[in-house]
Design a protein around this nucleic acid. Structure first.
Lengths: 211, 211
DNA sequence: CCATGCAGTTAACAACTGTTCTCCGTAAGG
DNA sequence: CCTTACGGAGAACAGTTGTTAACTGCATGG
């Protein structure tokens, strides 16, 4: 349907992306609520007023960044949580996947971790929404597992929330090891693996007390 | 040893505390990295230059706020994690304790959640340090429990980290229910309780596979 | 009682911010 | 081909920021 999209709109999206990229880089050392619009345009090499052609405010830009950081991540979740059925293998792959994602998009991960509880309400909301989607998707995937027999929807959501929180916590830890020795990374990898394993054990004995 | 501390230093600590209080209030709607020194002094009703008599910068003030928010919390941790030996009772008390703390000091909790991954490095460091202390204290307390027989120090630290993360996550959820209907608070209470219970179950079966 | 030290004030600085209005060049669409 | 629409530039605005300097009043310690 979309035919090559004229040179006009192409250039527009190009500068829009440049603004997003520059903002993301600047946000590695500050929070969104202190990011100035002039600061961003200066980094791109464009007039301050050009900013308004793309975003109403820096908060608006932040919401767009949330979409960029988390929007394309949903397919990966599904395939990972329900990959193989050997427990330890699944955990190992999940941890490796997180590690690789942090390696590939450190600025995005940092942005999400920072602004999840940050000072800009619309951005917090956008992140909360995306994470709620993740949690819902994880629950759906967990429900398919035969191990979830006898689980209430509520309990599955509880477990899914635990997994999503753990995912974020692990990503944040990997972020701190980016400029640290390889040994530190290994340590975090082992820590995250064992925490996931413990949660998995709790999961498999959850219904033990019930008839 | 400290004899009533002269009227001079008393007044100084009074304005210092006023600066901290004003900053904490302003930080409910923004991040530390966007908090201006003039903004704080204006809120207190004092000249901008007076700020320098107490803090070198707003980052410095932030570190002081971390101390205020977390410094006095350590004794509470110890007594809670090792209170009664009925599992469900212990969990119930822990969740209630968190809820009450969020009720009593919402701004402090918000500040910690926000700046833990925030844009000001010295503050992140200070929070990380305090949380590491918490984790260490929880581990020490867990080690006393007979249920920890056969656990390595490393595994105990892993479990303690899980508990501390869960504590923060729960506090953050309670924060969002502050202006929400009572029903929401109940929901979070139940969620946190079941998540802690699942972790507890995982804990009690952790050593099952080992000889 | 008097000299010192220090919390807080006042004034001024250059630099920066978000936003508005006016303008320009040019791709797009008839 | 010619008009329109639009991405971007430029200049100017009032207001804000952090930081410096020189000051004032008063509690403090000898």
């Amino acid at each position: 349907m979309s035919h090559t999209l004229g040179i006009r709109q192409a250039q527009k999206q190009k500068t829009r992306q440049a603004l997003l990229d520059a903002a993301l880089r600047l946000l590695e050392e500050q929070s969104l609520s202190s990011l100035g619009l002039r600061e961003v345009t200066r980094a791109v090499g464009v007039a301050p007023t050009a900013f308004y052609r793309h975003f109403r405010s820096t908060a608006d830009l932040g919401v767009a960044l949330v979409e960029e950081a988390l929007g394309s991540l949903h397919p990966m979740i599904r395939t990972t949580v329900s990959a193989v059925d050997d427990h330890d293998e699944r955990i190992k792959r999940a941890v490796e996947l997180i590690a690789r994602h942090v390696d590939a998009y450190p600025a995005h991960v940092r942005f999400i971790a920072r602004e999840r509880h940050g000072g800009v309400q619309p951005v917090r909301e956008a992140i909360r929404e995306q994470l709620a989607r993740f949690t819902e998707e994880v629950r759906t995937e967990l429900a398919k597992d035969p191990e979830s027999a006898g689980w209430s929807d509520d309990d599955l959501l509880m477990l899914a929330g635990l997994y999503v929180d753990q995912m974020l916590s692990t990503a944040s830890l990997f972020l701190e090891t980016l400029e640290a020795p390889e040994e530190e990374r290994r340590r975090v990898e082992r820590l995250a693996t064992r925490q996931l394993r413990l949660i998995g054990i709790g999961r498999s004995h959850w219904r033990d007390g019930t008839t």
